[in-house]
């Protein structure tokens, strides 16, 4: 057995304690702002801040009653649905040649496709603003925001699906081909079912990113509001408990969606295995 110096030495023990303490501080740092935000959304204090003067759900009622927020929600959902559709289709399609073709500059393309994630969203936003307004002379609208957001979200879908395709046994497809399946049927019955969990997860990620996207949308949405843009216009005038409540709802929705996206692929695989296991036991 290897000699484990860490358990023996008291200095190592101290080190371990310090590191553990540091980790606790990190989690406090990460979650304190969010926890406070949610706490204030239930605080009766109408200035949306300290001190706590009592528990209320009044602010949530006002959020649901506000027609501006309802309008912004409708716009947000429409934009996010379109962005999800575009980035899922484009990203999934691009994942195939990325993984399978013998492109000489494949890794270059891979890096190129991560550029929209890496470079500041500000640059994407203003460059599209210039294109739409002074080259195309388009009116800014939710549609122009959809294009901008899709540029940003598509690479996420592509990378997720590509990762799944990479771990995919090509023998399965060859077997289908040997059994007489044409390209379409191979895609329909072999490839798609196998990559579906990744496609779903990618779609959920794209939807969440779009729901929360701020900087690109700010430049391209025109006169309408998405929820983040609405919150931004409100924050300029100071914190209000209604904004805290709306922010908490948006946070909750994002965390829920992302939680599902993280768990979904494993859940689908497990469900399939269970079903196949049951079928196997019966036969």
């Amino acid at each position: 057995m290897p000699r484990d110096a860490e358990v023996v030495s008291p200095r190592a023990g101290l080190m371990r304690g310090l590191l553990g303490g540091w980790a606790v501080l990190v989690y406090v740092f990460l979650f304190a702002p969010v926890v406070l935000l949610v706490a204030f959304s239930f605080n009766a204090n109408r200035y949306g801040t300290f001190p706590f003067t009592g528990w209320t759900t009044k602010w949530y009622g006002q959020v649901f009653g506000d027609y501006q927020i309802r309008d912004a929600l409708t716009t947000t959902l429409k934009v996010s649905a379109e962005v999800t559709l575009i980035s899922t289709v484009v990203g999934t399609a691009a994942a195939f040649p990325l993984v399978r073709s013998r492109l000489p500059f494949r890794s270059g393309i891979r890096i190129g496709m991560t550029l929209p994630i890496m470079i500041p969203g500000l640059l994407i936003g203003i460059s599209l603003l210039v294109l739409f307004t002074s080259v195309f002379h388009w009116q800014l609208s939710p549609q122009t925001a959809v294009i901008g957001q899709s540029v940003y979200t598509t690479p996420f879908v592509m990378l997720l699906v590509a990762a799944r395709l990479q771990g995919f046994d090509p023998a399965l497809e060859r077997a289908a081909s040997d059994l007489g399946a044409n390209t379409f049927r191979r895609l329909r019955h072999v490839v798609l079912p196998l990559i579906m969990p990744a496609v779903f997860a990618g779609a959920l990620f794209a939807f969440t990113l779009s729901l929360d996207e701020f900087i690109i949308t700010l430049f391209l949405i025109g006169a309408q509001n998405t929820l983040p843009i609405y919150i931004y216009t409100q924050v300029k005038f100071g914190i209000t408990p209604e904004v805290n409540a709306l922010a908490s709802l948006l946070l909750g929705a994002s965390i829920l969606l992302i939680g599902i996206a993280f768990v979904l692929p494993t859940a689908i695989r497990r469900a399939r295995r269970l079903r196949h296991g049951a079928a196997g036991a019966r036969s």
């Binding site: 990190v26 989690y27 990460l30 979650f31 702002p33 969010v34 406070l36 935000l37 204030f40 949306g48 801040t49 990620f205 969440t208 990113l209 729901l211 929360d212 996207e213 701020f214 900087i215 983040p228 919150i231 931004y232 924050v235 914190i239 904004v243 805290n244 922010a247 948006l250 946070l251 994002s254 965390i255 992302i258 939680g259």
Partner: peptide, 18 residues
């Protein structure tokens, strides 16, 4: 740790105002 990254960028800045 990664979870906050997927939530709203705007809200993560905003939450510090509190």
């Amino acid at each position: 740790v990664i979870l906050p990254f997927w939530t709203s960028y705007l809200l993560r800045v905003y939450s510090w105002l509190n």
